[in-house]
């Protein structure tokens, strides 16, 4: 699904990612954890096609395509979805219009007929329940004056509507109260299937109580310093990122 080998990224003189390698197979859920400034959000942004980074990699492939050759919209149409840490407010475009335009762009790419507004609304309504938001939400401008929790739920709504093959969730859990966290986790779990993959980028272990990952990677200073199973996250929760820094130091010395 996603194959990364020796990914490096810099902005100007500053190297942010210093050689990341990661394999994500269909059906797997990966968690990428790390302290602030470790480069985990940069990794998510690069995968979604954000410009502004000088990127080199021995390999950076999604579904066998070279990601660096694909525009952000091509990635999305091929089923790559990024849930933003800070979803952007767009006054003047209604949520329903935004969702339908996005949905039909993906359908058109697949050679399918666009869905008319009546059929689309029916489909979206069923998804609204899953993310526990009111229908009036659809008429509001995209993310405009939404609370933090509403913005994250809106990201989940988009994810459920677009049914991606690979979902990258950039700190979708941060800033959520426990109810919203449970809802968001429910959306992620409902997406889990044999042919889909999920990469959760997170600072906290909390989300992983609800969405148990197959693999956990710990990122520090632009490198994956440790990979393991779900229990690695729990260990990290107990010992904190300080333990990791020492650990990383040992490894670097070795």
């Amino acid at each position: 699904m996603l194959s990364i080998r020796n990914l490096r990224a810099r902005v100007g003189e500053t190297e942010i990612l210093k050689g990341i390698s990661l394999e994500v197979n269909p059906g797997e859920v990966h968690a990428v954890m790390g302290p602030n400034g470790s480069g985990k959000s940069t990794l998510a942004r690069i995968l979604s096609g954000r410009e502004g980074y000088e990127i080199t990699a021995d390999k950076l492939e999604y579904m066998g395509h070279d990601l660096l050759e694909m525009t952000p919209e091509e990635r999305a149409r091929e089923g790559l979805f990024m849930a933003f840490q800070y979803p952007v407010e767009i006054p003047g475009i209604s949520n329903i219009q935004f969702l339908r335009t996005a949905y039909n762009s993906v359908r058109k790419h697949r050679g399918e007929e666009p869905l008319d507004s009546v059929d689309f609304l029916a489909m979206v309504k069923s998804r609204l329940k899953e993310v526990d938001i009111d229908q009036s939400f659809l008429r509001r401008s995209v993310n405009t004056d939404f609370s933090g929790g509403e913005k994250k739920r809106n990201e989940m709504l988009q994810m459920l509507v677009l049914e991606p093959r690979l979902a990258i969730l950039d700190e979708t859990d941060s800033g959520l109260d426990i109810d919203a966290l449970a809802t968001v986790a429910g959306s992620i779990n409902s997406l889990r299937s044999e042919d889909r993959s999920i990469v959760m980028v997170t600072h906290y272990q909390r989300l992983l109580d609800y969405v148990v990952p197959d693999h956990v990677h710990i990122l520090a200073d632009g490198r994956i310093v440790k990979s393991g199973k779900a229990d690695l996250a729990q260990k990290l929760e107990k010992k904190g990122y300080g333990w990791l820094a020492e650990h990383a130091g040992e490894e670097a010395e070795a």
């Binding site: 933003f84 952007v88 762009s105 988009q158």
Partner: peptide
Amino acid sequence: DQLFYLRSRGIDSPEARALLVRS
């Protein structure tokens, strides 16, 4: 940022620009 957000959902650049101009 708005342009990128729309494109990241599969909306191509010309259409994203048209949507933002309208909005």
